[in-house]
Design a protein around this nucleic acid. Structure first.
Lengths: 196, 196
DNA sequence: AGTCATGTACGGTACGGTACCGTACACCTC
DNA sequence: GAGGTGTACGGTACCGTACCGTACATGACT
């Protein structure tokens, strides 16, 4: 007799579930929310639609589940020696994260109209991550003596996020290094009262 | 004797064309690009599908046509007496314009992946309008003596547009007056080297 | 001028074909 | 035999095209 009372009690296979969620994220990235069909999800996950519908009630439900587990915890930004290089490093890291999330955000964005729940999930799990490092960077700059006092960090973060997403979603141009340097030197530095 | 080489050529009725384009814009606003069906366009425009397909080859073509004629020429910003109030007035005007365009931008955004042409049209006809007034406002501030020299206007415009679209598309919060004041006082003013 | 044949655009309808949704049912493994 | 799984199916929505009969402007002919 097995001593573990954990009689496996074969529940819904979590492996399957993960495969399905991966397929959903894949399709969201590739074709967007509206054009993502359940048939195709099933095909990619090598599962049947019945298997899918046993778990979730419909497309919004599935996508909501897929958006969970996309929270990305960023490590604290490393001390590069100066505020300027700290900001460049932090922004560059954020660029890579946003670039990865970009297709999904784009897909889901248009679905907000149809399903407001999706919008909330997107904010909570995708958009609001990766901005905690700013406090650290600016606090470090104050102790270094580069800044006379802590700036209006939320405002700076607001500008940074807005610039990133605007560039990514609307301008159609890449989040490359020269652009990051431009943001830091021509926008953030002046905003902090430092020489451009 | 007819000097004109008899170009009889009845044209397609421009009235009908306008009704169809209006219906397209309506549906783009209401349900988005993907969920817009030609049948529904025909129904709303009180036209037959044949009439529509006689003019355009398919959905991308129609939407492209509908995006034309959405260019909005803004009047030069009025002189309100100070740079701060000028900026607030200009931004407020821009807010109203963007709010109107917002649903269509949202719809079309997700279609960029499918049809890059749409993306180009959106930039040319929707996004790049309404920023010419900035030059006037800042030039006026210089002659008033409020600014020592002309600032980096493109950078300021970049920040303004990014903040507006970010707020509108991603934050889900309204472009209301307090927010505009916050942008001017907490972000643009510091960026210009003025007291917040 | 008045009449009429002609050509075109029009709304409406119907169709074949495709893609998708959500479910009923049979299978198959524990 | 109980429960997860795969297949097959009905139903719906949409696309793009073809065709009908009609309305109307044009241009020729009387």
């Amino acid at each position: 007799m097995p001593p573990s009372p954990a009689t496996p009690q074969y529940r819904l296979d979590p492996t399957r579930e993960q495969a399905i969620l991966d397929a959903i994220r894949e399709l969201l990235t590739e074709v967007g929310y509206d054009r993502m069909s359940i048939d195709e999800v099933a095909r990619r996950a090598k599962a049947s639609k019945a298997t899918i519908y046993r778990r979730w009630s419909g497309k919004p439900d599935m996508v909501a589940a897929a958006l969970h587990g996309m929270i990305t915890e960023l490590p604290d930004p490393p001390d590069t020696g100066s505020l300027r290089t700290d900001m460049i490093a932090t922004l560059t890291t954020l660029c890579r994260v946003y670039e990865r999330k970009h297709p999904i955000v784009l897909s889901v964005l248009s679905a907000i109209r149809t399903d407001p729940t999706i919008g909330r999930l997107m904010h909570d799990h995708i958009l609001d991550s990766g901005t905690a490092g700013a406090d650290i960077v600016f606090a470090r700059a104050v102790t270094r003596g580069e800044l006379p006092a802590l700036p209006d960090v939320p405002a700076v973060v607001e500008v940074g996020k807005a610039l990133l997403w605007h560039r990514l979603l609307l301008s159609g141009r890449p989040l490359d290094d020269p652009w990051v340097v431009h943001v830091v030197d021509d926008i953030l530095h002046p905003m902090l009262g430092l020489p451009g």
